[in-house]
Write a protein that binds this DNA or RNA. Sequence first.
DNA 1: AATAATACCAAACAATCGTTTAGTATCAAG
DNA 2: CTTGATACTAAACGATTGTTTGGTATTATT
Lengths: 208, 208
Amino acid sequence: MARPFSTDLTARQRRILDWVRAFADRNGMPPTVREIGSAFKITPRSVFDYLKVLERKGCLKRGRLGARSLTFSSQPLRTCPNCVSVPVVGRIAAGQPLEAIEDASAAVTAGQELSKGGAVFALQVTGDSMVEAGILDGDIVLVRKQETADDGDIVVALLEDEATLKYLYREGKQIRLQPANSRLHPIYVDADKLRIQGKVVSVQRLLD
Amino acid sequence: MARPFSTDLTARQRRILDWVRAFADRNGMPPTVREIGSAFKITPRSVFDYLKVLERKGCLKRGRLGARSLTFSSQPLRTCPNCVSVPVVGRIAAGQPLEAIEDASAAVTAGQELSKGGAVFALQVTGDSMVEAGILDGDIVLVRKQETADDGDIVVALLEDEATLKYLYREGKQIRLQPANSRLHPIYVDADKLRIQGKVVSVQRLLD
DNA sequence: AATAATACCAAACAATCGTTTAGTATCAAG
DNA sequence: CTTGATACTAAACGATTGTTTGGTATTATT
């Protein structure tokens, strides 16, 4: 090997990559091979070579979806217009009422969680009644508002003005609210005494 | 005019629009007419009609750039301009090399995690070596690139081309990589044998 | 001198693209 | 009963797509 290829880019490659990313940012989609070509006055073939080099160097990925299937790996990242900021509206713990948080600064971001429709709100979890489900004290749960849920779902349930976070299991006419903590016992209630507020669709934790 | 067209969407139109937006979010580019069609099992022509309706109703714009030239206009919720879509670049497990994911559709959203600066990437966790830290199999960890970390941080560490996710503890000249699973044992290595790739700043889990 | 990465070209390939033409069926309001 | 919006289909159009074949020239290292 005469000259081993470097992992960093030549000036030309850099300029092309920058242009491609700027295009994707402006237009919401990556350019075609020929769009890049006409911007730099080079042929599709040359662009094709550049894309392969840039892919080898880890700057982007060429997809198999056909037209415009470029995705970028390293920063700067693409902002996502569909992401929303979900306010953390309260805290929730076993056996304790929902406690409102006025702190407007508390908010998390959600993406895919919203794709299935339905309003989503966020709660901060206190206590360790769900530790064995990987939900720790201080975690944020994203909850989709719904009045029904399937067996095994983690739900926010209202029991005489007390909100709890538990696994839901139907057992005949009764409902079992199962904590994920072997030191705690399940709660059994009549189905009509219980109001399901929503289902946990995501768990988020900040460690920093 | 018998029935004046409403500015709001039918259930079908809503579902299609949601899917299209979710696709654009996941893949970094809008879908083609036929991709939408095969997702809903309808012909390109029908999709074409839907797109024209959705454009008329102001939900998106069809561009003149040819393939995939859809841009979206209105957002129902509070969008957060600081949020970015972080691609999931690989999987990580104890004792296994980083494995690249070609699935460009995988991406999570990040907000506050980015506030402290530094590039952030996402990994999907396999295995249960960190269960007692509330990190389960399949969870996504957001990792900030950095070469140093504090005692007790959860880090992505590279050990002779093997990447692992562990607690980091310095013990003299050695480093202890501590799993959060009482069935697993810590790994001791010389500080110069270890390369820290980054620190886990957030854990995300999708339950839906 | 040999090697290999860079930086381009013309011409063409099959596949896919958005779109058009020409229809059918349902449903609700005037 | 008509009108117009919705919700679709089959078949095809020309344009554009990523990619391939098969090159030339330059530059920098071994």
